[in-house]
Nucleic acid binder design. Structure first.
Length: 110
DNA sequence: GCACTGACCGGTC
DNA sequence: AGACCGGCCAGTG
């Protein structure tokens, strides 16, 4: 099936540059506000850095979260990428109130 | 089909 | 403010 995962990846692709979203927001867009963990699972398993900018997906508390298997080097690069796109990252913390992007439910079944 | 895992979240201590 | 605990969702053994 992996239908859920595909939706997650699709939404991740639609995240505009310079904006970030949270696992919860994606889950909510999919109609599963509590599936934040499943979202992380989908991203981790699919992890296609080029086709899917999963680095724009952060935690609801502003934390960078994980990246490509929670590899420290990758996580650091994730922060650098966000910073390069205009998202201010401070010690692994993102300004959600400034760059939080809320995906539309319509995009989930695009 | 059950049990464990995982890039999480929210509340509580 | 930092650490801990339980819960929820999908994927995998």
């Amino acid at each position: 099936m992996a239908e859920f995962s595909e939706r997650v990846l699709r939404i991740a692709k639609l995240i505009p540059k310079g904006k970030v979203t949270t696992y919860s927001e994606i889950a909510r867009a999919l109609g599963r506000p509590l599936a934040c963990r499943a979202v992380g699972q989908a991203l981790r398993r699919n992890a296609r850095p080029v086709e899917i900018p999963c680095h724009r997906v952060v935690r609801s508390d502003g934390g960078i979260g994980g990246y490509s298997g929670s590899r420290p080097g990758k996580i650091r690069q994730k922060a650098m990428l966000l910073s390069s796109e205009g998202v201010e990252v401070r010690d692994g913390m993102v300004n959600l109130g400034r760059h939080m992007h809320k995906p539309d439910a319509g995009q989930s079944f695009l």
